[in-house]
Simulated assay, not measured.
Amino acid sequence: MSFGKMYQRLLQNHFYLVQCIQTASLMTTGDCLAQLAIEKRTFKQYDFRRTAEFAFLGGVLVGPAVSAWYILLQRQFGHERNLRTTLCKMCCDQLLFAPMFLVVFITSLELIHDSKPGHIKQAFKNTYMDILLTNWKVWPAVQMVNFYVIPLQYQVLFVQAVAVFWNTYLSWKTQN
């Protein structure tokens, strides 16, 4: 059996589990790139806990949330691949989901670090608007392609493949 057929079978039988594992893997990759390529850390300086935190959030938060969100968008706006449906999905994604999900993501990351409420508030003040504005520079175009071209079962994979670079940015931005 080819890898593609095996992947499709796994998606059919274990949709959320596959999304969680692939998202955790790709978020791990993003954090590794942030630490090694952007921050220029050596192996001795490498923060393995930070990578584990990104993997954990990818597997238990990002993967399930994004998967459920795309299913909800599909139910709400249908399966049609036309400009109107694609624009509706993208606008909902970027004006509703993205701003709220960034709040959840930043809060979750701070809670993993056992941050106090004042520190969480400061983290929002320091990072939220920059991340949200950068999000709006990157993701509307990606989501237009995603919702117009990519079948539902591959949308999380497509987004997470693009998100390797986004996760690199998020890791760097939230950790520095």
Rank of each mutant, 00 (worst) to 15 (best):
F3T: 15
Q22M: 12
K173N: 02
K125R: 07
P151C: 01
Q175T: 14
N82F: 06
Q143V: 02
F158T: 09
Q74E: 12
C32D: 00
N13R: 14
W136T: 13
G30F: 02
F165V: 12
A68N: 10
Y148N: 08
A68Y: 13
C20D: 04
P64D: 04
G118S: 03
L33G: 07
M6A: 14
L111I: 11
L111V: 10
Y16K: 01
D130M: 01
P64W: 13
Q160A: 00
A34K: 06
Q143F: 07
F48C: 07
F105G: 04
Q155I: 02
Y169Q: 12
M1R: 15
L133S: 15
Q22P: 12
W172I: 09
W139H: 12
A68T: 01
G4R: 11
K121S: 14
A163N: 08
V60Y: 15
T174S: 03
E80Q: 15
F77H: 06
G30N: 01
F147K: 02
S25I: 03
Q153V: 14
F77G: 02
V18S: 06
P151V: 09
G78Q: 06
L26H: 02
Q160V: 02
M129F: 08
Q45N: 03
K5W: 15
T29A: 12
K137N: 15
F3G: 14
V142A: 08
W136E: 14
S115E: 14
R75N: 15
L109E: 00
G59Q: 03
I120V: 15
A65Y: 12
H119F: 09
I131Q: 01
L10A: 07
S67D: 06
T86Q: 05
K44P: 10
K89C: 04
N176G: 08
P140G: 05
T134C: 10
L111R: 05
A123K: 07
A123L: 08
C91R: 07
V142M: 05
G78C: 07
P151L: 04
V62G: 12
T85K: 09
R9M: 14
L73T: 08
V164Q: 00
F56V: 01
V104D: 12
F124Y: 10
